[in-house]
Design a protein around this nucleic acid. Structure first.
Lengths: 212, 212, 212, 212
DNA sequence: GATGAATGAGCCTTCATTCAT
DNA sequence: AATGAATGAAGGCTCATTCAT
């Protein structure tokens, strides 16, 4: 069996075990078992527990970003009208893709969101890169929406950044919730968040704020 | 030294170490050291690592809920006019209390939010109880707000629940963000979230929704 | 059982196993077994294989130097005439003590001479210190002998150093030989070397050299 | 590439690695790498780590003995006057050859002297054979020297054996010393030992002994 | 003839946990 | 009430060794 295939099997197993047990509690023995190979082979290909975990993070981060990108580009119309979608449709498509992907690979999401971020520096930095990529994308969407609405730039740049953080944070949180509670589909989660967020953003763009 | 005091010292130490190292990486040796007692004494009082961790979770969960409750009840006017505050003021007070408390006890927040939820079943259930309590409270606030606005109950119960989840999730996410990034105060975090959320909720109560 | 005693037992066992198997081939498991304790206790007291080996080297080096010193000081006459012995008697006493000690503790000698010196830098340096101490002592003896013989200092300092090296080297080598081949007693080994060396030194002090 | 050549390359690599790392710490992987072949090929030709090590010992022992023999036979005059050299010239030639050879192949010397002798029985015996051959040769030289001096055989056979042991031991020790300390050439080492030894031997042949 | 792929076994190290005092 | 002393069990990692090709 070629090396590349075996490596993917190992990463599959590792993501599963890391997701279920946590980084520390996961044992290389169990990972090798689940991958259907011997432990030395895991070391031969991936060198150490640390590198194995890093490889998992990288693969899953790339897969998630790719999924969201594909969702946004593909849009709703089926790939024809590329790039021309309005900001709200792009956000909607991105959220759907995000919730779908995380629902399909719950262990991967746990690894990225819950495990990697709580295991200290070599790993946290790895996910931080991906997250910033997504935050930047959302930020650009909000800014574009403001432009589309032909408003004077009522929203300061710093404020937009804060809103993007809140939106991404809410999405992350809902992903965990939707996965944990089986009765919520990806589409429902996306709709809930879209409703919650888009209306709020619209109001803010009108300059209406809540003050104590 | 009375037993109750010693126990609190141990829990203090445990929360700190669990928060900094994670459940698995934390060693009973270090906890006993930091607590200034011998290891067997820790076992005498708290039986096992698992029970010790559970005790930490319970204590900190109770403290957090109590802080939020106190914030809401105390309100802005100083404790006199109980229960009479409008829903938005109550939410505002609760958010402020939440962000303040988590900022004051970062290790405790890490234990509750990052560690307990990722260490499997005995522990995840423990925090889930507390979280549900808070979600229920937020849900009641949203419902009350709808009543105050004298609308027909346009918002289905299920929908309200989803919104509460999103709001709580966003708050949790922002708490981590605010603690990690020193430049954001509790009040700022609360204001960001309040702006984001209240406008959206208001719109929804008016029956305006985003549809694809 | 008090800690100090246990530590000596562990060192006894370690010296034996390191001597018989070599540093790498010796297993902490076997050492713990032979010491009659569990492996974690060995780690609790001596931290690591490396530190354990270093502790062995230090203890045995000190013991060997002490034995030689005691032999020289005690002299043949029984401790009365301290310090006044002529150089040849001192050398004779030192050699006897050296061969006696190495014969009594063959594993310790193997550890010092064969193992420690071939396991790279943390360890080699440790024995080098002891060896230099002995070489310095022998050097001073040769120089004193030259003075006693009322010769002009025919022997250059560098030459004396080389002779000391050769003498110590010969002694080290004979120690291994005498221990390996049971029919040679410590006294015989000392006599052989004394005969071999003292005559040669005497000749050299007379200025007689072998030239091709 | 013919098998014999490949085998020599492997032995070259093995001697180097065994010498630098020690028997246990040397890995078959590294040896195969350095030899420029794959690991299974090493096993195909040399069967096991143990046999590989044994093969190294045998080859290097034979090479060393051959070098010394050649030095003695070749003598100073260039190979013409075989066998006629006096004993001291033969010893001088042998020592020079010995120190030259060990200086040229330091790893080989480490393998023979430091590693093989400390790795237990299969290997120690292998070098012992070679050493005895050399000791026997030196013994015969001393005896011949005594004859040449026309003395009655004052030196008992047992005594001669002891002296040969001491001389060989001193040479072994000086070899390590000279290789480790770069400032000593083969010729210097040989001269130091020759001076030290021949005078002592001469004295003994005259019947002058050191007595306590 | 030669090797890429794979593994059983073992070693160093750590940790939660328990007695005897 | 409190602890010094001690351990069973497990985990990360490496290595000599073997097939199928």
């Amino acid at each position: 069996m070629p090396r590349a295939v075996r490596e993917q099997q190992m990463l599959d197993a590792a993501v599963r075990i890391f997701g279920q047990r946590g980084y520390r509690a996961a044992s290389m023995d169990e990972i090798a078992d689940v991958a259907g190979v011997s432990k030395p082979l895991v070391y031969l290909y991936l060198n150490s527990k640390e590198e194995l975990f890093t490889a998992c993070i990288r693969r899953e981060a790339a897969a998630l970003v790719a999924a969201v990108r594909a969702g946004v580009s593909g849009g709703e119309g089926g790939g024809g009208v590329r790039g021309g979608l309005p900001a709200d449709r792009q956000l909607w498509a991105g959220l759907q893709a995000f919730f779908t992907h995380t629902a399909e690979r719950p262990d991967a999401w746990v690894v990225l969101h819950n495990q990697a971020r709580t295991q200290g520096e070599p790993f946290a930095a790895e996910v931080a890169v991906m997250r910033e990529e997504i935050v930047a994308f959302v930020t650009s969407l909000i800014a574009e929406a403001a432009r589309e609405a032909h408003r004077k730039p009522e929203l300061a740049e710093r404020e937009v950044a804060g809103l993007a953080q809140a939106l991404v944070g809410a999405a992350e949180s809902l992903a965990g919730w939707a996965n944990g509670d089986a009765s919520v589909s990806a589409k429902e989660a996306a709709a809930t968040l879209m409703n919650f967020a888009w209306a709020g953003l619209g109001e803010l763009m009108e300059g209406r704020r809540w003050v104590p």
